[in-house]
Amino acid sequence: MGPKRIENKRRKFFQTSAALIGGTLLYSLIKPFEALAQPKEEEDPKIDKADLPLWGMGVDIEKCIGCGKCAEACKIENNVPIEPFYFRTWVEQYTVKKNGEVKIESPNGGIGGLKQSVPDEDIFKSFLVPKLCNHCTKAPCVQACPVGATYISPDGVVLVDETYCIGCSYCIQACPYGARFMNPVTKVADKCTFCYHRITKGLQPACVEACPTDARIFGDLRDKETDLVTFLQENPTEVLKPHLNTHCRVFYNGLSSEVR
């Protein structure tokens, strides 16, 4: 009785394991074809991206005079708290001193006009860099969001879902450009939306509207007739932190290597 019982058990064990392994293998073989079984349900709600615009912005550092009108206009347009820590867009003044030191300053985000704090005789060069969300094609903030509250819209704008955000601020840490902040009023992540409520109505973003020197150029990257595309054709442009492979849609002309 003894040895036979063991054999029976062993046989059953082999049978079940074979069935399990075979089943798993079979399933993994079938799985790739699952998509074929129901392709229509998947495709219908999707938007054809080629018909949509692909928004982008050009920033001409050679034209920026650091008046801070863009930062102020942005605060008014988007109800950003007026305290000097919350900015969707801001202007930085870079001063390279003759001893090689780089001084970066942005008092109140540039609102009220930037003033040079370094005496003229010490300056090697000085320039102004407007900053905003770079609307990355491969956005680190979108990957970091645990609930899907930040996303890239079909027309290429990185947006925040204010009602869905849980305020964990992972995205703020993930953003390599420091373009996000925690809104103290709504208690959720806040960032530049390219003024999504304006651009979808055919208007320009508020910062572009307010810029007195046309240092910001906004437009559709797919439409080859726009000012933005002309700007990209005529100027050698660069994105910020290209080594991060974020594939930004904000392009800078006249970008120095000191800019971080």
Partner: peptide, 12 residues
């Protein structure tokens, strides 16, 4: 949420 973002009134 795309619509929520679109719905706001422009000031400028």
């Amino acid at each position: 949420s795309l619509n929520d973002n679109k719905m706001r009134t422009p000031y400028f």
